[in-house]
Amino acid sequence: MEITDTQLAKVRQIAQTVVEGDMGAVEAAYLLLPILRRFSGLVTQDDLNFVIAIGSETDDLPLGPVRELWDPNVLIEKDREIARCDELWKDQFRATCERIQSRLLPS
């Protein structure tokens, strides 16, 4: 199965948003992982491994629609953990997204 234009545009948009500093590594990895796992040729193996590692390290953090089910008081602490992880991986993940952008330049 080939990647759709919509999926490709989503990967490009997420990468651009990270490069611009408007999305952190944890949220971006959460959004990118389903696509990159399915279409691993979009990225280098090292970059894929890094995104998978972030997903694995943060799979206990509330992301996406599931946040609505969490206690707001608990979310405060979990959001601190997300912010800590984002800061830890910020530069390396931005570089990963820059490489993704380079690989996915429109032909």
Rank of each mutant, 00 (worst) to 15 (best):
T4C: 00
C97V: 07
R80I: 00
R80A: 14
K10S: 13
L88C: 08
A53E: 07
E2S: 05
D47A: 06
E98V: 12
V26M: 09
T4D: 02
E57G: 12
L104M: 02
E68M: 11
A95D: 11
E27H: 10
Q101P: 01
G21F: 09
R94L: 13
E68F: 09
P106D: 07
L33G: 10
S40F: 05
L88W: 11
K90Y: 11
Y30T: 01
S56W: 13
Q16Y: 02
F39M: 05
P72C: 11
C97Y: 03
D86Y: 01
C85P: 00
S56P: 03
R38A: 12
I52C: 13
S107Y: 01
D47W: 02
D59A: 04
R94Q: 15
R99P: 10
M1T: 10
L63A: 04
P62S: 10
D71M: 11
W70I: 15
L32K: 02
F50K: 10
A9D: 15
F39S: 06
E2G: 00
Q92T: 14
E2A: 06
L105M: 02
G64Y: 00
F93S: 08
R99L: 04
A15T: 05
L36F: 03
N73F: 14
D71F: 08
E68W: 04
R99T: 04
A53I: 00
R103L: 12
F39T: 08
M23N: 04
Q13N: 10
E27A: 13
L61K: 07
R67M: 08
I100F: 03
D46G: 03
L104Q: 03
A25G: 10
R37T: 09
E98N: 09
D71L: 10
L104Y: 02
G24N: 07
T17V: 09
I54H: 07
A15V: 05
D71K: 12
T44Y: 01
F93Y: 11
I54L: 14
Q101F: 01
A53R: 15
I52Q: 14
G21H: 03
S40A: 13
D5S: 11
G41F: 04
L105F: 00
D22T: 15
E98C: 10
D86F: 02
E87W: 01
V43R: 08
S40T: 12
E20I: 11
T17D: 01
R67V: 13
P72K: 12
D59I: 00
F93G: 05
F50E: 09
I76Q: 09
E81D: 12
Y30M: 07
R84N: 08
Q16D: 13
A83K: 08
Y30Q: 05
I76Y: 09
L33N: 11
E68D: 14
A9P: 04
P72F: 07
Q7S: 08
